[in-house]
């Protein structure tokens, strides 16, 4: 149980506000169904945000499958040939975004656009806003990592 409500994970915490919870869920699910940036790339960005925020809850979460090798080596993405140019462009953008969105450069944006176009850049920043927000809330709500893992498992059944 978190301090903010009787909820023990994101879903049950948001559950005290059914209308907002539903609207959020519809938006969140749309991130993983859109065509502009592959969901697996967004998942790597989401996991990198979780690493940078040191958020175990979000590291335990799994929104879509990425190879275990990439998940395990994610913190070394910039020095390993394991990651594609598309992934590297989005991860580089994500790292600066996480520190300070004002510090993003045109070069970082152009690198994303060179793979995914203007719409892909918009999709990435929109997704990062939501994923960074949920990571911060997991930390602020002090949700236990174990229950989030359980929540993900239940959603996949």
């Amino acid at each position: 149980m978190g301090w903010i409500s009787n909820g023990s994970d994101r879903r049950s915490t948001l559950g005290v506000l059914p209308e907002i919870s539903l609207a959020f869920d519809v938006l969140y699910q749309s991130l993983w169904k859109q065509q502009h940036v592959p969901p697996a790339v967004l998942e790597l960005c989401r996991l990198r945000l979780a690493q940078l925020h040191r958020c175990d809850v979000e590291l335990h979460r799994q929104e879509c499958l990425v190879p275990d090798t990439k998940r395990d080596k994610l913190s070394q993405w910039s020095s390993l040939p394991l990651f594609t140019d598309e992934e590297c462009a989005c991860l580089a953008f994500t790292e600066v975004y996480a520190m300070d969105a004002q510090a993003l450069t045109d070069e970082l944006a152009e690198a994303v656009k060179s793979h995914f176009g203007d719409a892909g850049l918009v999709m990435l920043v929109e997704a990062l806003g939501i994923l960074d927000g949920m990571t911060r809330l997991s930390l602020l709500w002090q949700l236990p990592a174990s229950s989030e893992a359980q929540e993900c498992a239940e959603q996949r059944v």
Partner: peptide, 26 residues
């Protein structure tokens, strides 16, 4: 109340994401 705190959480997360989106797009 708990409902107000969860609402406030979503207010801040939503608008912060929007602000960062606007800043990121220049």
């Amino acid at each position: 109340t708990s409902q107000e705190l969860v609402h406030l959480s979503m207010v801040v997360a939503h608008f912060s994401g929007f602000s960062r989106c606007a800043v990121s797009l220049g």
